[in-house]
Design a protein around this nucleic acid. Structure first.
Length: 270
DNA sequence: CCGCCGCCCTGCTTGC
DNA sequence: TGCAAGCAGGGCGGCG
């Protein structure tokens, strides 16, 4: 599942690989995966566009085009953005492709077809419902404390809510809560200020560490060059039911919270 | 505004 | 061993 660190890694790889290239044509094999505003034809609109830069917002990769339009890509669980060389055969589930004038192409593949490449018009505020960037200076402990106050929602559900904090998914929610020794089901408003500060610190730290290791490859995630990340070897709880907590030695358990698998330590997460 | 539910899909796991 | 059924999951629209 590509979350913030994975999408950041992909966006950096894309920035190096496709900045400055011109789109000669797009091929769309699965129409629902290439979305454009009403009355705009996706393929026609991107033809001739130049890639100005590639960035990230939350879990979205954002390709800035010369006209001021953007291609905003949501990978959901199984989406992949991979740069392919001239003449390279189609990769599995390559449903949308941007062919550049130099013969290379950007393949958008997704076995579950949940991913979307959305063309956004110049100036269109596409991210109005996305919350704060957790690695930006805006995400202060005080801001986080304010975000949690009065809320009865389990803290893990709040971490997953993209309207509050953008980019945190199941892996890093579980890891951050373990790092801060907080029980995932704790109502947000029940957390003490020291606990919220621990969580703030744990969240920022785990995201930074994962980016440094080029993300977590547990299911389908690979970077823009098709390479796996390294953080799957550094996970403390995610996907590790039955193995020992590296802090207290007790078994990691898996429960279900907010309709998501949740891995944690019953002993040291309170 | 808030929170919950169902839906989208298909690879993988489970159970017989 | 083989097959069918059921699960998993991020974002979004609908609903209360």
């Amino acid at each position: 599942m590509p979350e913030l660190p994975e999408v950041e890694t992909i966006a950096r790889g894309l920035a190096r690989a496709i900045t400055g290239k011109t789109i000669e044509r797009a091929s769309v094999r699965l129409a629902k995966m290439a979305v454009a505003p009403a009355r705009v034809n996706f393929k026609r609109a991107v033809r001739g566009e130049r890639v100005i830069s590639v960035g990230r917002r939350g879990k979205y990769a954002v390709i800035e085009l010369g006209s001021g339009r953007r291609l905003v890509v949501s990978l959901r669980m199984t989406g992949r953005l991979i740069v392919l060389e001239r003449g390279q055969a189609a990769i599995p589930y390559e449903h949308v492709s941007l062919h550049f004038t130099d013969g290379t192409r950007l393949a958008f593949a997704d076995s579950r077809q949940f991913g979307r490449m959305r063309l956004v018009e110049r100036g269109e505020p596409w991210d109005a419902n996305l919350g704060i960037e957790p690695l930006s200076g805006d995400f202060t402990p005080e801001r986080f404390i304010g975000m949690l106050s009065g809320r009865t929602t389990p803290i893990k559900a709040l971490l997953l809510d993209q309207r509050r904090i953008a980019g945190v998914g199941n892996i890093y929610a579980c890891e951050a809560l373990w790092g801060a020794r907080i029980r995932p089901s704790t109502p947000a408003k029940a957390l003490t200020k020291p606990a919220i500060r621990r969580l703030h610190n744990a969240l920022v730290e785990v995201l930074q560490r994962s980016i440094a290791m080029r993300g977590t490859s547990v299911d389908d995630y690979v970077d823009a060059q098709g390479l796996q990340g390294g953080f799957q070897n550094a996970l403390s709880v995610y996907g590790r039911a039955g193995s020992r907590c590296e802090r207290c030695g007790r078994a990691i358990v898996r429960t279900v919270l907010a309709a998501r698998g949740t891995w944690w330590c019953r002993t040291c997460q309170r």
